Simulated scan of single mutants.
Amino acid sequence: MKPSPRRTCLALAAVLAFLAGCSTSVAGSPPAVTKVEQTFSAPSVTPPAAAVTSSSSVPSASSAATSSGPSAQGKVVVLDPGHNGGNSSNPAAINKKVPAGRGQTKACNTTGTSTNAGYTEHQFTWDVSTRVRELLAAKGIQVVLTRDSDTGVGPCVDKRAAIGNQARADAVVSIHADGSNSPGAHGFHIAYSAPPLNAAQGEPAKRLATTLRDGLRSAGFATSTYIGTAGLSPRDDLGGLNLSERPAALVECGNMRNEAEAAVLSSTQGRQRYADAIAAAILAYLA
């Protein structure tokens, strides 16, 4: 029997209503997300370029920083954000003795320092490292972080060095800030392992340290008035540098206990300036 036009319209309306109801249900019921945290996190690996997205906590790099400079596609860089957010509440774990090179043992890790206003070093190093990661990944570099959040514990200094070695990194850069109470102490310095224990700790590490020094100085940051000479500080007591088999350097970005410098270290604009300078120096080293 041929359906009447009125019956056909009613059937069509019912189908449309059903489809609209299904659409509303799907849009209103997103899948649940479960966050899993570990005490010692696996290193975070950021693939190059297109896979990198910005987040609200890590602003996109300035166009000047991302559109200029040499390309280093295919290179691997390990960034080591100093300390970790859970260290202070886990003293047994971070005080455990681990190998530190040159026959030494040292504490697994430390809590780091802070500004007099309470902004912590671990917050600073994590923020700057993620900014540097974004800048380098935009240039086609594979970036590995030695920790994947700012809420965990460690890793220990020997594990941090092992991450760089296992990644066969072209450069390892550890990011820190200092905490000297010496009157007037301010400025950045770059540490590297000396005397060298292997070939990578020789000319390559010294060149990496010097390039980082030159990059930060060119960006307007003052060299340290209280450690090292002209912004360079050869060290034989830093486990992460002693145990590295890849070119490695440690950047102490400034003194968090100096009032003027703390204001820069604590500001979003200041942290982006540090990140821009460090990323540009790493690119120059890899060129």
Rank of each mutant, 00 (worst) to 15 (best):
T151D: 15
A137M: 05
D148T: 10
R168A: 07
H122N: 14
L136K: 10
R168T: 02
Q123M: 11
G101D: 04
T113C: 13
D170N: 14
R160T: 01
S114E: 13
K106F: 00
R147V: 01
W126I: 00
C108M: 11
R168N: 13
T120L: 14
G112C: 11
K106Y: 02
V172Q: 07
Q166A: 13
A138F: 04
D148R: 14
A137F: 03
S129I: 00
N95E: 10
T146S: 07
V132E: 07
A138H: 09
V128S: 12
R102A: 09
Q166E: 14
T105R: 07
C108L: 08
E134Q: 15
G164V: 01
L145K: 08
G140R: 04
P155Y: 11
A100C: 15
K159H: 02
I141W: 08
W126T: 03
R147P: 06
S129E: 05
T125S: 15
R160P: 05
C156I: 01
T110G: 15
T125E: 09
E134W: 10
N95P: 01
T130P: 00
G140E: 06
A167Q: 03
T130C: 10
H122A: 07
V144R: 10
D158N: 15
K139F: 00
E134F: 11
R133P: 00
T146M: 08
E121C: 10
R168G: 05
V153Q: 10
V128K: 13
K96C: 06
D150L: 04
N109Y: 02
A117D: 13
V144G: 06
E134T: 14
R133Y: 04
N95K: 11
G164Y: 02
A171T: 00
N116M: 06
T110K: 12
T111A: 14
S129C: 05
V157H: 11
R168C: 00
V132T: 06
G118W: 08
S114Y: 04
P155N: 13
T115S: 14
W126L: 09
V173S: 06
V132A: 13
H122S: 13
G118H: 10
G140S: 06
A117K: 15
P99R: 04
A171Y: 01
T151Y: 09
A107R: 13
G112P: 07
N165Y: 02
G154R: 08
G164Q: 03
G140A: 05
T111V: 15
K139W: 00
L135G: 04
T105E: 13
N109A: 15
S114R: 14
A171H: 01
T111W: 08
D127G: 01
